[in-house]
């Protein structure tokens, strides 16, 4: 029974993935890609990785989808007549990719006799940190350097996006393409949903210590709420030079780094938590990270500063 569902799901994922790759219109390809992301989150649930499923749905499909839709809306005028590549190129690429797929499939079909896993050692020391969610444990205890660096990547990528602004507009407002006219229904949505959304976002971060969820997923929900409010025209897009905005961007990484350095003085080791204080410190990190991630994701979606959009 389980297998029938899994086989259907996999077929659906492959079909939708192929459809997104070969769809004629870029707009359709992107809409299909969002569906593809949601199907993938189902696959993640089937693989017993609920944390990843939430992240995939929120960031991999949700926020990325917003980003791509925003892009295709602006590119629509240029979405004409792609020159198809030569068939010889297509065939060569096809053979090459089939080869890669086949070799990977060959490895999948012959799993190692003794499955390798760090799950036992993760669980062995998880108790010390007071966390109940092993994924949060890996992210914030064992491999916290990865997570810290990844936060830097996210902020740096935003500076990179901003760097594409014309010289004179540095520090200006990103031109989120507003809805053509103030739409009463959209405004109603943007007034009613955010309170619920913000609550959901905070809840996701809060349960993240012990159950699936966490700063990434919570932050993504917060980002979506903020973008909704901005699209509806209820809140202005902040200028990128805004002091408050920049503080919100870095508060998470700064607190993370500060607690990491604190570890040197209290325990003698960078990114180690003093005994008994691990959980409160991690919650402090996650709380500030949720804010920073939410703001950073939303600013990624609205893009670099631009001249006011005129339709």
């Amino acid at each position: 029974m389980a297998s029938v569902f899994d086989v259907t799901l996999v077929c659906l994922i492959l079909a939708v993935g192929a459809w997104s790759t070969f769809a004629r219109l870029t707009f359709s390809a992107i809409v299909i890609f969002i569906v593809y992301g949601l199907l993938l989150s189902l696959a993640w649930v089937r693989l017993a990785a609920v944390d990843v499923a939430l992240t995939e749905a929120a960031i991999g499909s949700g926020v990325t989808g917003m980003l791509l839709l925003n892009a295709v809306a602006r590119l629509r005028s240029t979405d004409a007549a792609p020159t198809p590549s030569r068939s010889s190129v297509n065939i060569a690429a096809g053979v090459f990719c089939t080869l890669i797929t086949a070799s990977l499939a060959g490895l999948v079909l012959v799993p190692p006799q003794v499955p390798v896993s760090l799950a036992p050692s993760v669980m062995e020391s998880l108790g010390q940190s007071g966390l109940g969610n092993p994924v949060a444990g890996v992210l914030f205890v064992y491999r916290s350097l990865d997570t810290l660096l990844e936060k830097v990547v996210l902020v740096l990528a935003l500076i990179a996006v901003w760097s594409l602004a014309p010289d004179g507009l540095w520090g200006g407002k990103p031109a989120l393409r507003p809805f053509p006219q103030r739409d009463s229904v959209l405004i109603f949505l943007a007034r009613t949903v955010p309170p619920i959304g913000i609550m959901v976002g905070i809840y996701m971060f809060w349960v993240g210590a012990d159950e699936p969820g966490g700063a990434f997923q919570g932050g993504a929900v917060l980002a979506a709420m903020w973008i909704l409010v901005m699209i509806a025209g209820l809140a202005a897009v902040p200028p990128t030079s805004s002091h408050a905005l920049r503080l919100a961007l870095i508060v998470g990484p700064v607190v993370f780094l500060a607690i990491g350095i604190l570890g040197i003085f209290l325990t003698g080791t960078f990114l180690a938590y003093p005994e008994g204080y691990a959980k409160p410190l991690i919650i402090a990190i996650e709380a500030t990270l949720t804010v920073s991630i939410g703001v950073t994701l939303a600013m990624h979606v609205v893009g670099p500063p631009e001249k006011e959009w005129r339709s």
Binding site: A49, T55, G60, T64, P115, V135, L139, R143, V161
Partner: peptide, 28 residues
């Protein structure tokens, strides 16, 4: 790698979460 009462090895799962965020930055 499901073991120790977990449905899966949390180490690669955490890596995927990191990877998804990095991939998002790249897309942006």
């Amino acid at each position: 790698g499901a073991a120790a009462g977990l449905g899966g090895d949390p180490v690669p799962q955490a890596m995927v979460i990191t990877g998804i965020v990095v991939a998002f930055s790249a897309t942006a």
